[in-house]
Write a protein that binds this DNA or RNA. Structure first.
Lengths: 149, 149
DNA sequence: TTCCTTTTCGCATAAATATGCAACTCACTG
DNA sequence: CAGTGAGTTGCATATTTATGCGAAAAGGAA
């Protein structure tokens, strides 16, 4: 039966997109209800072939996700690429980057034209972000930290 | 040190997008070279927070991959949604679907206007695809099977 | 058919990942 | 300050996933 595998993988796709399946063993049990009996080992192989990945919310397709980097807004990209450390100091925020990363990161922040940012000063591996007051600094910090994830 | 975690996750992002990291333990060793010492357990938590998933090619971001379904060409979507089984018979191809799935699947195939397809007939849960000859049938079969993955 | 090659799959187990729990650190509060 | 609560981490271990290998099945060729 050549179509056995194809059929099974079709079912897997269907199951996985419709409900939350969080382990291969759970998937195995669901398939058994459809009268498909296979081992976890086979499912491990199937999932790889189908490019389904395990997430906190169950298995999901990963068809097209090569370079998310190229599709991100500039600041998000810069933060992901350069921001190594971030520390608050009153109304200031000190950002650390790898050598040479400060200028591009500062430029990206400037580019956002956030009203909370009074200005930035970039050295080689450090950016100083100046906010009018602590409250503003906290907000900037929050936004940057959100971008990291 | 509140920024410890943030810093580490920044490094993880950087590492993972630049090189191929295939296990948490490997990631742990790479981080150690940067003088970041944490256990695999912590990395497991970090990866989840960063929404990085394990793929055959290493860890990858899963930020934007909610509904691939909506962005797929119609046939690919229909195949994924409805095609349960596929069996060749000379110059014919018999496709099985869940009840009611045959019409939409057949419509999607028709929509492709493949020259190898002489025509289709759709019942309730079965589609018959008619090809001019075996060779053409094989080609259609191949394309459909490719779409499954 | 019969023989050969390729693919699929289970078994057993290795490898990798997730998590309950307790320790520790901060930031605050009374 | 002591006390409280939230957040972070390591440890130990449970749970989950991957894989080497051999058996069986499928697909072709002659």
């Amino acid at each position: 039966m050549r179509t056995q595998k194809t059929y099974r993988q079709g079912q897997i796709l269907k199951l996985v997109t419709n409900e939350r399946v969080t382990s291969q063993d759970e998937l195995r049990r669901r398939l058994r209800q459809l009268n498909l009996r296979v081992t976890q080992a086979t499912l491990s192989r199937d999932l790889r072939e189908l490019k389904l990945v395990k997430t906190a919310e169950g298995y999901k397709p990963l068809s097209a996700v090569p370079e998310e980097t190229t599709s991100l807004p500039p600041l998000a990209r810069a933060v992901r690429e350069f921001l190594l450390d971030l520390r608050p100091a009153q109304n200031l925020l000190v950002l650390k980057t790898p050598p040479g990363g400060a200028q591009p990161l500062a430029a990206a922040i400037d580019g956002e034209r956030w009203k909370e940012v009074a200005g930035t000063i970039a050295g080689d591996d450090t950016v100083l972000v100046i906010a009018p007051h602590r409250r503003a600094r906290a907000e900037i910090q929050r936004r940057l930290e959100d971008l990291i994830r």
